[in-house]
Amino acid sequence: MKAIRRFLPTAQTVSFVLLMLLCLLVFGLLKPSYATWDNLYSMVLSACVAAVLAAGMGVVISAGGFDLCVGHTAGFSALMCGFFLRTLDFDPIPAMLLAIGMAVAIGAINGLLVSRMGISSFIVTLGMQFVLVGARQWITAGNSYRVSNLIKGMVQSAFLGVSNLVWISAAMLGVIGFVMQKTPFGRKIQFTGANIVATALNGTPTRLYTFLAFLISGAISGVVGILQFGKLTSATINMGDGWLFNAMTIAVFSSVIFGRFKAHGLALVSFLITMITTGINMQGVSSAWTNFVLGVILLASLFAGKFIHFDSFGKKPKRSEDNGCQATV
């Protein structure tokens, strides 16, 4: 019986699917073009990139830190790829790898400052966000770049009728979820966030793990940047603005409801949030509404997290209860 239950969808999953159907019904009635296959598919495409970015953010959150520059790192990676391609005439593959390499370097600098200097990750990554905003202006001089056909093809061509973007995102989510949940490496990152002193006394080099968490987040942001570049087919100067908030909402919401690093949780939450924001956007109302709703969702999930956490005190832990966000957010 227990074995069967493991394969049945949980109450959370079922309620999420119901919420999605409700969204489809409400927004579909308000605007019939919402409930079309084309629109649903384009929402899936947006949602999966956001979910991957949120997973990167989640790695840092579980290590006890915060990465406020995931969105800007991703945008910067896309812009740099375009810059290498168009201004410096690089071939697509080296341009792409170099751009991702820069994102890794950004993560490494964040990681070093936090783990070696002991500066609050909030301050470090906030500062880095401004550095990136300045740097992109200075390097690109405000230019936009068109993507190369190779990168566009890599991202947009379909396999079994579904865009590569979806396959790549699913694979990344799966790998991140697996590493964080199922390997000693991932667990040590989470232990570092849970109690850094006790974890150091367990013999875990906590500074290294903190550093690696930021490095991984940087790398993931870099890849997300390239995916977005291929998806949107051009990189503009303001690329990455606003991605942070989306990623943060998804990361927090998902870990509160589904537990840490459930790949399907990140995907479902990301899709639901995309459904809501797209639905609002399609009503032709001000974008302020979207921000307002996102903010409310973030705060509500934090509230729910506190509530669930408090309620579970002294009882058996369920995976959905212990999320790493409460301590740090």
């Binding site: 232990f191 109690n195 002193v197 006790a198 006394l201």
Partner: peptide, 10 residues
């Protein structure tokens, strides 16, 4: 509590 255990874990 501070040095020995991971309180939120099982």
């Amino acid at each position: 509590a501070l040095q020995g255990m991971l309180g939120d874990w099982s």
